[in-house]
């Protein structure tokens, strides 16, 4: 089963962090949506998220889903980016003992998963410790 269309559709978000800001209340959304969950407005301005933020929480996945089994163990976290948008992603290039709430991170472009030996390669954002 190819997931090309599904993957392709998400490229603006996964590659370039394209998001939006509610034209009415200013709330930022990633990914973009059609209705503001803050105020109900339906008009938005396109924005691009910054690539720095801080870690709100984290874990180390020791048992992964089938497509990630080869990658375990890997760290994951929820990060609040400058601007307030929050997202979940893996934390790469980190020593697990260094993980802590509040840790500054930045985003790097990484390969997220492979669809088997012959399928497409799926890229996107991961966090890495900020210097």
């Amino acid at each position: 089963m190819s997931t090309s269309a599904k993957y392709w559709r998400g490229i603006p978000q996964r590659y370039r962090l394209e998001a939006e800001r509610c034209a009415s209340c200013g709330m930022e959304f990633f990914p973009p949506r059609l209705v503001c969950s803050g105020c109900g407005a339906r008009k938005f301005m396109p924005i691009t998220l910054g690539d720095h933020g801080k870690l709100l929480t984290y874990t180390v996945i020791r048992v992964g889903p089938s497509e990630f089994c080869e990658q375990t163990p890997y760290a994951m976290g929820i990060v609040e980016l400058e601007g307030g948008v929050r997202m979940t992603a893996q934390i790469a290039d980190v020593d697990f003992d260094d993980l802590e709430v509040g840790m500054p991170v930045r985003i790097e472009f990484r390969k997220i998963r492979e669809e088997g030996q012959a399928g497409i390669l799926c890229y996107g954002y991961k966090f890495v410790p900020a210097d």
Binding site: K6, G10, R14, P31, L56, T57, Y58, T59, I61, V63, G64, P65, E67, F68, Q71, Y74, M76, G77, I78, M87, T88, A89, Q90, V101, I112, R113, C122, G124, K126
Partner: peptide, 20 residues
């Protein structure tokens, strides 16, 4: 698309709740 895509699991999500 925005959690599982990155490799999160349910134990992982609740672990993040626990850490928080």
């Amino acid at each position: 698309e925005y959690e599982v895509y990155s490799g999160v699991t349910f134990p992982g999500l609740y672990a993040m709740v626990a850490v928080a």
